[in-house]
Amino acid sequence: MEVRTIKVFTTVDNINLHTQVVDMSMTYGQQFGPTYLDGADVTKIKPHNSHEGKTFYVLPNDDTLRVEAFEYYHTTDPSFLGRYMSALNHTKKWKYPQVNGLTSIKWADNNCYLATALLTLQQIELKFNPPALQDAYYRARAGEAANFCALILAYCNKTVGELGDVRETMSYLFQHANLDSCKRVLNVVCKTCGQQQTTLKGVEAVMYMGTLSYEQFKKGVQIPCTCGKQATKYLVQQESPFVMMSAPPAQYELKHGTFTCASEYTGNYQCGHYKHITSKETLYCIDGALLTKSSEYKGPITDVFYKENSYTTTIK
Rank of each mutant, 00 (worst) to 15 (best):
Y84G: 03
A40M: 14
E204N: 09
K95S: 14
Y252K: 04
C149I: 09
H48K: 15
T282K: 14
K280Y: 08
D135M: 09
G228M: 01
T192R: 12
V8S: 06
G288I: 00
K127S: 13
P130W: 02
Q196W: 13
A142W: 11
S246I: 00
Y252D: 00
K127F: 10
M85S: 04
L17P: 07
M207I: 08
Y234W: 09
L283S: 00
Y265N: 03
E125H: 08
S310N: 12
A250S: 12
V203T: 10
W107D: 04
N49M: 11
Y28E: 00
A87M: 05
F128Q: 04
L153N: 02
T64I: 14
I277Y: 02
A117S: 09
C156K: 03
Y138W: 14
N309F: 09
S171R: 14
V188D: 06
A231Q: 02
Y96Q: 02
Y274T: 00
P131E: 01
T258D: 13
Y57I: 10
E281P: 02
A205G: 01
N14M: 13
T226L: 10
F9E: 10
M245W: 01
Q197N: 10
T211F: 06
A247C: 09
A289S: 12
Y155D: 04
E2K: 11
C156T: 10
I152M: 10
Q197Y: 08
D109N: 09
V243S: 01
Q270W: 06
F242C: 01
N89H: 14
P78A: 11
D109R: 03
V203L: 09
A136I: 03
T282A: 14
T302N: 02
M245S: 00
L163W: 08
L81N: 02
Q237F: 12
V206E: 00
S263L: 06
K127L: 07
C182G: 07
P34W: 08
K275V: 14
E125W: 05
R83N: 10
T211E: 12
P241D: 09
F9L: 11
W94I: 03
W94F: 02
A108V: 08
Y306G: 01
R184P: 02
A262S: 01
L119S: 05
L254K: 02
C227T: 02
G143M: 04
N157E: 08
F217P: 01
D287S: 02
M207S: 06
L121R: 05
L212F: 02
W107E: 03
R4H: 11
T169D: 03
S240F: 00
